[in-house]
Amino acid sequence: MNRTELRFALHLLPFLDSVEDFEDGLVKLSDRRWLVWHPDVMAALFRHDRDLRHPPSRTLSPLLGNRSVLWLDGDEHTAYRRTLAPMLRGHRYRALIDEMVERSIAELPSGDPVGLAQWTRKLTLRIIGRIVFGVDDEELLGAFTRWLDRRLGSRVRTLAHRYLTPGTTRFDPHLDRMLLHRATTAEPPALAAFLPPEDLRDQVVSLLFAGHETTASATAWTVYWIDRTPGLADEVLDDPDLLDATITESLRLSPPATLAGNRMSGDGMVLTPSIYLAHRRAATYPHPHTFDPAREQPPPGAFFPFGGGVRHCPGKDLALLEIRLIVTALLRHRRIRLNATTCTPQLRGAAMAPPPSLAMVATCRR
């Protein structure tokens, strides 16, 4: 591993910040790998995505499994997406999301600090857990959260699992048995009836992980930017278009994922798209570090918080609906105050969340 690869692997955000001003929008990481973010390159890459391979993440594949839909290619990938996509259509779950959001807000202690990212993570996991299993199972979801935090809860843990014992899985047999029991006894059988038994574990874990981690981070970042912008909390409640623009700008400036997976050409060249850098490119976004919901729509290839091409997130509409409903309900029922005006992002794999130290104090509106 050369020095550039080492900086990219060990100090991802500082490395990305250090190359932000590269106008050509690409950096050579090694002889066979490039980091890319120029909008023209990204638009072309996503147009030809079906012709490329998508190597597994060395951080996430030991957790999610090699049979995760996130790594499959060709007809197999297409078939799995067709199976999973219907259960991720947001409009089906509006009443469910409303119910679970209201319950979580009611559980907030008035006047006591609560970790913002931890709260959104717990809520979005409850939602995807109900969608996947059809029931609430706090014991199972608690066990899943602890398992995930042991592996991604800090950068040190993530790097240790990735580099000290490479090539080994990070499964928890007891947790897997709990997950498979819930999946096979779900009513209706959302997954077990349509997936081969040998693939069921990997798809369930992938849905739970991808279905809550980035949505939770995006929601927390949206609350953060609203808190930092005087008067915006009241304005977004009266203007749904402004709320959507606020969410979009939060996704631009604080994308919940820094990278959009790997693409490999037929000759073995790997391209890694950087969402983080594409969204902060000064030639595309004037004053890119300024939070501005009034920004004009960017050109193709310049904004892809949910990935792009054939690998774009099938749960995008569900995620956006959750963010809208959570933020709206939270601001309508509570006055929110955060304990800091700035915060250093925490990496969980390639995902970017507010740090555990960022807490919110929620008091009842009168």
Score class of each variant (00 low, 15 high):
His11Cys: 14
Leu16Glu: 13
Leu16Trp: 05
Leu16Pro: 15
Asp17Pro: 12
Val19Trp: 06
Asp21Trp: 00
Leu26Pro: 04
Leu29Ile: 14
Pro39Tyr: 00
Ala43Ile: 09
Phe46Met: 11
Arg47Lys: 09
Asp49Gln: 02
Asp49Cys: 03
Pro62Met: 07
Gly74Met: 01
His77Asp: 06
Arg82His: 10
Ala85Phe: 09
Met87Arg: 01
Arg89Pro: 00
His91Val: 14
Val101Gln: 03
Val101Cys: 06
Asp112Thr: 12
Pro113Tyr: 03
Pro113Lys: 05
Val114Asp: 05
Thr124Ile: 12
Ile127Leu: 06
Ile128Pro: 01
Ile128His: 04
Val132Ser: 02
Val135Pro: 01
Asp136Glu: 12
Ala143His: 06
Val156Tyr: 01
Arg157Ser: 11
Ala160Asp: 03
Thr165Ser: 12
Leu179Arg: 10
His181Pro: 04
Ala186Arg: 04
Pro189Lys: 03
Ala190Val: 15
Ala190His: 08
Leu195Cys: 04
Arg201Phe: 15
Ser206Gln: 09
His212Cys: 11
Thr214Ile: 08
Ser217His: 11
Ala218Leu: 12
Trp221Asn: 10
Val223Pro: 06
Arg228Asn: 14
Thr229Ser: 14
Leu237Glu: 09
Asp238Arg: 12
Ile247Glu: 01
Ser250Ile: 10
Leu251Ser: 14
Gly261Leu: 14
Ser265Thr: 15
Gly266Trp: 02
Ala282Glu: 07
Tyr285Gly: 09
Pro286Asp: 01
Thr290Arg: 04
Pro293Gly: 06
Gly307Ala: 08
Arg311Gly: 10
Leu321Trp: 03
Leu325His: 05
Thr328Met: 06
Thr328Asn: 02
Arg335Trp: 03
Ile336Tyr: 02
Ala340Thr: 13
Thr341Asp: 09
Thr341Cys: 11
Gln346His: 12
Gly349Glu: 06
Ala359Leu: 14
